[in-house]
Nucleic acid binder design. Structure first.
Lengths: 195, 195
DNA sequence: CTTTAAGTCGAGGGATGGCCTCAGGTTAAC
DNA sequence: GTTAACCTGAGGCCATCCCTCGACTTAAAG
């Protein structure tokens, strides 16, 4: 049934995937497919031969990225230092966003089934870092989601500066020395009014 | 030369401006003009009669907003408490972003001459708050710009939660009690690598 | 109540940009 | 040499937004 591809066909397919990785990283999941074909140096018809639906191409490209992301979360959970593990995971996530707009859209702005897995791990990362007394006690995983969203805009508009903003965010997450819960003693207020 | 508008024409003009405020707040500066006319209950031709160029309509709508924004910065500078003034200005800015996408684009993502004025005031707000010992010494106005950009994404994706993110970031900006510059003593590291 | 200039209407023509197909030419593989 | 797999890209389709213009309506002046 599934005969192997002819050699040139395989080469072209690979070129298309490579081109799509670049183009989608730059322009996001909605990037026009003509741009992908052009980047690969192939005709649009060839792209459609290999990937009849946009989703076929997206899947091919993104599955690996999402998997690697989940692995990062897994490794963070195994880190000796809970805080260190959490921070590294967040930093990796933010860096991936800065490099890859498609990743940002898929992993952080769209909501996705695969994310359920990552989300579970993030919840455990949070709990673990709080138990270690390193992460503010009034934080939960939704706060981290907000931070990651926030980073995505910074990475987009000022790609050279996301790290600067990132370190501020980390400072916001870090538990203070005992007896110093912020200069005015206020916890994070939960919002009551709609946006 | 400039005879006054006929009464119906004036009414329609006002309706167009009101509609444009709504539509641009929801959809941004690029919102299709048909949507504006439809919201006003008028035909597209009428819109073009009153505002032959898109810029005419944008100016009419946004000038006031930018002015009001600058006034907020001015009032913040006159606040008794430097920290309080700074925080209120930031909060107002973030709230305007949450309510008005056109404002976000014009004031925070595009760069604009009017912004020079606001920027100068923000620099003074920073200096003043630092002199008062309330704002971290390693912050400058670009950090605040990044923060405000970041908020724009949060406000877009999770409009009900920007305040939560906001308060966390404010905690990160606040100077710690003397002798407690963060749990591990690290200042915000200046990035050296590109994004 | 006319007159008329100002104003309104909205179908429709134009530009753009992305999607996808398919008939005709090319090439790997046997 | 044969053949099925493959590649090509012009071109048709569609959607969206742009803006115009000739026919119609109406405020307001006389």
């Amino acid at each position: 049934m599934d005969r192997p591809l002819r050699r040139d066909a395989q080469r072209n397919r690979d070129a298309l995937v490579a081109a799509a990785k670049e183009v989608l990283a730059e322009r996001g999941l909605q990037a026009p497919l003509d741009a992908v074909a052009k980047r690969a140096g192939l005709a649009i018809g060839t792209l459609y031969r290999h990937f009849p639906e946009r989703g076929d191409l997206i899947d091919e490209i993104m599955d690996g990225k999402v998997t690697r992301w989940a692995e990062l979360a897994g490794k963070a959970l195994e880190a000796e230092d809970a805080w260190e593990g959490l921070v590294r995971f967040l930093e990796h996530t933010c860096e991936m966003q800065a490099r890859d707009r498609a990743f940002t859209e898929l992993a952080c702005l769209v909501h996705l089934e695969d994310k359920a897995e990552v989300r579970g791990m993030v919840e455990r990362l949070v709990e673990r870092a709080q138990r270690a007394g390193a992460l503010r006690a009034d934080i939960d995983h939704t706060d981290l989601a907000l931070f990651v969203m926030a980073n995505s805009r910074v990475a987009e508009v000022a790609p050279g500066q996301w790290r600067r903003h990132f370190h501020l965010m980390i400072d916001a997450l870090r538990a203070r020395a005992a007896g110093d819960p912020g200069a005015d003693g206020a916890a994070v207020r939960r919002p009551t009014s709609p946006g």
